[in-house]
């Protein structure tokens, strides 16, 4: 299901990537990797509370919370030896965390292919990010109907 348009924060990230030349895009992805927040205490060391995303090439775990005011909060865990996976998580964190559930659900599934990374990173690797987004949306839907 693809619907809606990119929220302004994600749209800005997409624009930032596309304004850069090839090698600089990888540097930007690395910045997102470096800036990925560490897990808060309630999740750190509690992998059982997180959902694994096996579609990523390296281990990635995520948790999704929907607050009473409908704001979505995202938490990710990936090792420093997996900077690409961390970078994808960082983009989703920066672009989606704090938005309303509806805004998160409206994120077009194909946005991952708009970052201009396909040729640099390879489609196989990008599939991991699409899978993360899919799992985030599913968890948001589950949390709302729960």
């Amino acid at each position: 299901m693809t619907s809606g348009t990119l929220n302004p924060r994600l749209a800005e990230i997409v624009e930032d990537f596309n304004s850069l030349a090839g090698q600089e895009r990888l540097q930007l992805l690395l910045e997102f990797s470096d800036d990925l927040p560490a897990l808060p205490e309630r999740y750190a060391g509690h992998r059982d509370l997180l959902e694994q995303v096996p579609e990523c090439q390296s281990p990635l775990f995520l948790a999704v919370e929907v607050a009473p005011d409908d704001a979505v909060h995202l938490f990710f865990d990936a090792p420093p030896e997996a900077p690409t996976t961390r970078g994808f998580a960082g983009i989703l964190q920066a672009g989606l965390d704090g938005l309303d559930a509806d805004e998160v659900l409206a994120t077009p599934d194909e946005f991952t292919s708009q970052l201009g990374l396909t040729d640099l990173v390879s489609p196989l690797r990008l599939r991991g990010m699409a899978a993360m987004l899919g799992r985030i949306k599913r968890q948001v839907r589950d949390r709302r109907t729960a």
Binding site: L26, Q27, L29, L30, S33, Q57, S58, P80, E81, A82, P83, T84, T85, G87, L120, V121, S122, R125
Partner: peptide, 9 residues
């Protein structure tokens, strides 16, 4: 590497 960014780190 398997990870395309690891070299950059």
């Amino acid at each position: 590497d398997e990870d395309v960014l690891l070299y950059e780190t």
